[in-house]
Amino acid sequence: MAIDYDNAHHLDAENLAEQGIAKAYNDVLPELRQYVKNPIAIHQSVDAYATRYAVHAAGQELVIYGPDIPGSEDKSWGTATYVFFKIINDQLASSDVRFYALNGGNDLFGIFLTPSQAEDAKRSLPTRADWPYLPDAEWPWYGQYH
């Protein structure tokens, strides 16, 4: 099964890291509601003076970057990607779908797939970097196949 890229959401990791998680979440929310009856509300906190950006979701503060986390600005694209997908996939825990990442960086997309659809897509895509993946917090690849 090939991936239907028309169903993918363009996210752009740079946009996520530049205080764009709430906007991207609102863009994905209509489709998320097909799988989650009551999606959580999220909000962002930005402190321009301290150069700090965090997202609040389900009682957690998820820091994208801040002065108290060494190197966090350099890793903000990956961290923002991980946090964004974590917020959505935590809500999908009892669903039969997950929100998979495609590509990364400025070409980051997200798509709802079942695990078997993701495995089928891997078999149909010869390049590992094109495979759908579930982002993790591990620098430098954040879960992306390479």
Rank of each mutant, 00 (worst) to 15 (best):
I3P: 13
L102G: 01
P39Y: 03
Y53D: 00
V83T: 09
G110L: 05
P115N: 11
V83I: 15
Q91V: 03
Q91Y: 01
H10L: 13
D90Q: 07
Y133A: 09
A101M: 03
N15L: 13
Q34M: 06
F84R: 01
I42L: 07
K122T: 00
A80G: 02
A118Y: 10
D4E: 06
K86S: 11
D96G: 07
R52H: 15
L29E: 10
P39T: 02
G66C: 12
W141L: 13
D96K: 14
A22G: 02
Q44M: 09
V55I: 04
Y53P: 01
P115F: 11
I111M: 03
E31Q: 04
Q19R: 15
V63W: 09
D107M: 10
Y82H: 13
F84P: 00
V63N: 04
E138Y: 08
G104S: 14
G20M: 07
Y53I: 04
S45I: 14
D136W: 14
I40H: 14
T127Q: 15
Y25D: 00
S116C: 10
Y49E: 08
Y35T: 00
V83Y: 09
A118C: 11
Y5P: 04
L32V: 00
L108D: 00
N26L: 14
Q144A: 12
W131E: 04
L11C: 03
G59E: 14
P67T: 09
G104V: 08
A50Y: 05
A93Y: 07
G78Q: 13
L113D: 00
L16I: 09
N26K: 15
A41E: 15
P135I: 06
D74I: 11
P30M: 14
Q60S: 10
Y142V: 06
A50D: 09
L29M: 15
I111H: 02
A13I: 11
I21T: 00
N38Q: 13
H56M: 13
Y82S: 01
Q34S: 12
H9L: 11
I42C: 06
E119N: 14
D74T: 10
D90S: 02
E31K: 00
W141E: 15
